[in-house]
């Protein structure tokens, strides 16, 4: 048992955190490479993005498939981005008319989002494009 895992279990035993928080912390410290082929939490292996569109009268299609493990690794990597970089990105996004605060995106919340991807199906239909996002 590594030190981080032991520290979390000690905090749980001492009542400093509840079982849900302990589970989240244990999830956050477990290495991505121990995840099995089919993602253990979502039961799904891939996230699929399909966009069908028409541009200048020509049909186009974007079909992207990424492993859920890649999203998980990306979320963990994003936690390492320094706050000053996020603030600069916020300022640039605000200049472009997108008032979005990246500092409010917490790795734990993103992790939860990835965990529940199997329940998410996004479908956007318009006259020019159709977008579908789902896990498989």
């Amino acid at each position: 048992m590594n030190e981080q895992r032991k520290a979390i279990l000690d905090m749980l035993a001492e009542g400093k955190i509840n079982a849900t928080e302990a589970e989240r912390l244990l999830t956050a410290i477990e290495p991505a490479d121990t995840a099995p082929a089919a993602d253990r939490k979502t039961g799904k292996k891939y996230l699929r993005l399909v966009v069908d569109y028409t541009e200048n009268g020509e049909p186009g299609r974007v079909n992207i498939r990424v492993p859920v493990a890649l999203l998980r690794a990306g979320v963990r990597l994003s936690a390492l981005v320094p706050a000053q970089a996020l603030e600069k990105a916020n300022a640039e996004m605000a200049k472009s008319g997108v008032p979005f605060d990246l500092t409010q995106l917490k790795p734990n919340e993103l992790e939860e989002l990835v965990n529940h991807l199997d329940e998410v199906i996004v479908e956007v239909d318009s006259s020019e494009a159709q977008v579908r996002i789902y896990s498989e």
Binding site: A32, K45, G60, R61, V62, N63, R65, L70, R72
Partner: peptide
């Protein structure tokens, strides 16, 4: 390490 299995297909 998590990249294998990724597939990007773009048509225009």
């Amino acid at each position: 390490g998590a990249l294998p299995g990724s597939r990007f297909h773009i048509e225009q």
